[in-house]
């Protein structure tokens, strides 16, 4: 089934001076990336904790407010992100096989998905913004929201939307960073930079980051858009 990748010990020139060999270097990079992702988990973790606390405390209110979010839009975004994750995974696979066209193709798909995600997010946010459902003093609640949600006090609604904007905003920020990083990676592949064409690890690291962005959304979607009563 699985085929051995075409990497041997001819890669000594890629190895930085502090490492003994290529194996040690690539393993260090991957462990380092995971250690970084561990910090990212804790970074989002505090917000998830706040979410769970207030959801537990204000479950009925939150349930009514969440009806104002469009689960179809969220669902489309979930699909888009899942597909982008697949595209990155395939791009990394192509990088292992040193298939330049494949990598560039799949990364382009990823970028399109990421952009699509942000566009949909933009529509969701701007729709809310125009209704006055926004952060800050000018928070308006009542007009233009679904009739269930109108029963809820504006304060609790604002708390809900604070969590919503913080968590999806932080996630969106990670998407933007991802787009930039993938852009840089694509440029390197495009220019045939041997640092990426001869060594699959940089592509793999970017891939790991992008999958993490996907992971966060996998949790955000049911938590915000599909809340049970």
């Amino acid at each position: 089934m699985a085929t051995e990748a075409a990497h041997g010990h001819d890669q000594q020139w890629l190895v930085h001076h502090q490492y003994e060999d290529y194996e040690q270097q690539s393993e260090s990079y991957i462990v380092g990336m995971w250690a970084f992702l561990v910090t990212e988990i804790m970074f989002f973790g505090a917000l998830f904790l706040a979410y769970v606390l207030y959801r537990w405390q204000y479950q009925p209110e939150f349930y009514l407010i969440h009806k104002d979010l469009d689960w179809v839009m969220g669902g489309i975004n979930t699909t888009v992100l899942l597909f982008s994750s697949l595209a990155v995974a395939l791009a990394v696979r192509c990088a292992m096989l040193q298939d330049r066209k494949g990598v560039l193709g799949w990364l382009t798909v990823t970028q399109l998905c990421a952009a699509g995600f942000l566009v949909i997010k933009y529509f969701e946010w701007s729709h809310k913004y125009h209704k006055g459902v926004w952060l800050g003093e000018g928070f308006k609640w009542g007009e233009g929201v679904t009739k269930y949600a109108q029963d809820v006090s504006a304060n609790t609604a604002q708390l809900f939307y604070s969590l919503y904007y913080c968590m999806t905003g932080l996630h969106g920020f990670h998407v933007v960073i991802g787009i930039i990083v993938i852009g840089i990676l694509m440029r390197m592949w495009f220019k045939n930079n041997p640092l990426v064409t001869k060594d699959y690890v940089p592509t793999e690291l970017v891939g790991l980051y992008w999958h993490f962005v996907d992971l966060v959304w996998i949790f955000l979607y049911p938590l915000f858009y599909l809340m049970p009563r």
Binding site: A2, T3, E4, A5, E23, Q24, E27, M96, L97, Y200
Partner: peptide, 10 residues
């Protein structure tokens, strides 16, 4: 890992 080896399988 040198011994476990980094033989990443495609």
């Amino acid at each position: 890992s040198t011994h476990l080896s980094h033989n990443h399988h495609v």
